[in-house]
């Protein structure tokens, strides 16, 4: 918790999968944003799938990070899907007035993979022959 954890970025086919499993402090949020963009450039991935199913809160800072990642990834010719939002998080996002511009949200990872494939032609399947590629992890300094 509090950003002490590691946030892995996995490359599955042409998709970067980012499972967020810790409550992130602001610095961790900014570092993650930077790392996703670096990995997009380095790996040539075309999709970003961010799993927030374990996030118990999305405030305006994290909400903005998600929108920013989507916008920056779009400029780099990649699409962003956020999956697994908890109902309580969806309610507070609306009450806060956040719209998550440019971010597609779906219920789970399966739906996210399907959306990237069907809507944008970005496949994760080829990786299941080649296996998962672990492209790095974030270790928060301190």
């Amino acid at each position: 918790m509090n950003g002490h954890g590691r946030i892995p970025i996995l490359k599955v086919g042409r998709v970067l999968v980012v499972p967020i499993q810790v409550d992130m402090d602001d610095q961790t949020v900014l570092l993650l944003q930077e790392r996703i963009l670096t990995e997009l450039e380095r790996t040539g991935a075309r999709g970003v799938l961010i799993d927030i199913s374990l996030l118990e809160m999305v405030d305006s800072f994290i909400g903005r990070m998600l929108s920013d990642i989507a916008a920056m990834a779009r400029i780099m010719d990649a699409r962003t899907v956020v999956v697994g939002m908890q109902p309580a998080v969806a309610i507070t996002l609306v009450e806060l007035g956040l719209e998550l511009n440019g971010v597609d949200t779906v219920l789970n990872v399966d739906e996210g993979i399907k959306l990237l494939r069907d809507e944008f032609g970005i496949g994760a399947e080829e990786a299941f022959d080649g296996g998962l590629n672990f492209v790095g992890e974030q270790i928060n300094p301190s």
Partner: peptide, 17 residues
């Protein structure tokens, strides 16, 4: 309730920031 825990947590995050 969970939803109110989430509201209070989010408010704390916004105002503390």
């Amino acid at each position: 309730r969970i939803i109110d825990q989430t509201r209070l947590t989010t408010v704390a995050s916004e105002l503390a920031r």
